[in-house]
Computed example of a mutant assay.
Amino acid sequence: MIVRTLEERAGTEYDVGTDTWKSRRLLLKEDGVGFSLHDTVIKAGTETLIWYKHHIEAVYCVEGEGEVELIETGEKFRIVPGTMYVLNGHERHYLRGGAVDMRVVCVFNPPCTGREVHDEEGAYATAE
């Protein structure tokens, strides 16, 4: 059994961030459970290009607000607490923070290793 708290991950190597987001990685590939679990804050007023071409990501919003815009179609989806979305088609998209920070819980398959940040295409590298 694995038991962890957000507080014990904060400020460690499992606390990864950029100018637009901060992600506390709670479960990773090394844990051997077949997926990774992240508690992520999308900073208010920011925009991040994302294309998980090597991963499927499910996202559940628990606080704040934001928006996902699919690049191929231009469709926009408002994200508020209680909203879940899955990028099951490897959709290229913009993730935008709203007027306040948005906190989401993310699940990745295959699992992330823990240090990933988006490359110039908005992707994470394949897990080794």
Results as ranks from 00 to 15, higher is better:
residue 2 I to K: 10
residue 2 I to F: 07
residue 5 T to A: 15
residue 7 E to G: 11
residue 8 E to D: 02
residue 10 A to V: 14
residue 14 Y to L: 12
residue 16 V to F: 04
residue 18 T to A: 05
residue 18 T to R: 01
residue 19 D to N: 10
residue 23 S to A: 11
residue 26 L to W: 01
residue 26 L to I: 06
residue 27 L to I: 15
residue 29 K to P: 05
residue 31 D to C: 05
residue 33 V to Q: 01
residue 39 D to W: 13
residue 42 I to M: 07
residue 43 K to L: 08
residue 44 A to P: 05
residue 44 A to Y: 07
residue 45 G to H: 07
residue 45 G to V: 04
residue 50 I to L: 10
residue 52 Y to R: 05
residue 53 K to H: 13
residue 63 E to D: 15
residue 64 G to F: 04
residue 64 G to I: 06
residue 64 G to N: 05
residue 64 G to C: 03
residue 65 E to N: 10
residue 65 E to F: 01
residue 68 V to C: 02
residue 69 E to R: 13
residue 69 E to H: 12
residue 70 L to F: 11
residue 71 I to M: 06
residue 73 T to F: 08
residue 77 F to G: 03
residue 77 F to A: 11
residue 78 R to K: 15
residue 84 M to H: 04
residue 89 G to L: 10
residue 90 H to C: 13
residue 91 E to H: 06
residue 95 L to S: 08
residue 96 R to V: 12
residue 97 G to E: 08
residue 98 G to T: 11
residue 99 A to H: 12
residue 100 V to R: 08
residue 103 R to L: 11
residue 107 V to I: 07
residue 107 V to E: 02
residue 108 F to G: 03
residue 109 N to T: 14
residue 110 P to E: 06
residue 111 P to T: 05
residue 114 G to P: 00
residue 114 G to D: 00
residue 118 H to G: 06
residue 120 E to K: 12
residue 123 A to R: 13
residue 123 A to L: 03
residue 125 A to Q: 06
